[in-house]
């Protein structure tokens, strides 16, 4: 069984990311880490990745949308995702290694804030389309800090006491 990369843009349009992973250099970087296949979820994007460029460094498949990405994430050994909080936390909570690629074309990009912060804490790697190949080449998954899932219990406890509910 070869190791698999899953690329997702969620419900957005992020051609720059798909183009970046579709380059020969990027595929070579992916292959150098022992990944043999790649599935891309391209959302509203109009750029279609090349399925087979002859030398088949990495086997490429793609689709636009799926009702649930859970199965794709589960079967992946590395996830490359847009910076949406939904995709980020779904991946982290599954304990999958993650590279978040920030869309520089978006105005008021508050999502970069989240990716930066989580990268600073070591939970994930952080890239732009232009730096993705470099990040993949240099990545060391052993340096990632395992993500500890959290929940809403702190909000619920605080709210209950604010409202005068005592257990």
């Amino acid at each position: 069984m070869g190791r698999k990369v899953f690329v997702t843009v969620g419900t957005t349009r992020f051609d720059a990311l798909i183009k970046a992973v579709d380059t020969r250099a990027c595929k070579a970087a992916i292959a150098s880490h022992g990944y043999s296949s790649m599935v891309l979820q391209i959302g509203h994007g109009s750029y279609l990745p090349t399925k087979d460029d002859g030398d088949s460094l990495v086997e490429v498949n793609f689709f636009t949308f799926a009702a649930d990405l859970k199965e794709h994430l589960k079967s992946a050994d590395l996830v490359i995702s847009h910076a949406g909080s939904g995709s980020i936390f779904e991946t982290l909570r599954m304990g999958k290694p993650l590279i978040v690629v920030v869309n520089e074309a978006l105005m008021d990009n508050h999502q970069a804030e989240l990716a930066e912060e989580l990268a600073a804490q070591g939970y994930l790697m952080y890239a732009f389309p232009s730096t993705l190949e470099d990040v993949i080449t240099k990545m060391n998954l052993n340096l990632l800090v395992p993500y500890e899932p959290s929940d809403a219990s702190a909000v619920v406890t605080s709210l209950s006491s604010f409202l005068g509910f005592h257990n």
């Binding site: 909080s85 936390f89 508050h110 804030e113 989240l114 930066e116 912060e117 709210l159």
Partner: peptide
């Protein structure tokens, strides 16, 4: 009651 989104780290 308002809960700010997890995406808002600094702003």
């Amino acid at each position: 009651v308002y809960v700010e989104s997890i995406a808002r780290v600094r702003r």
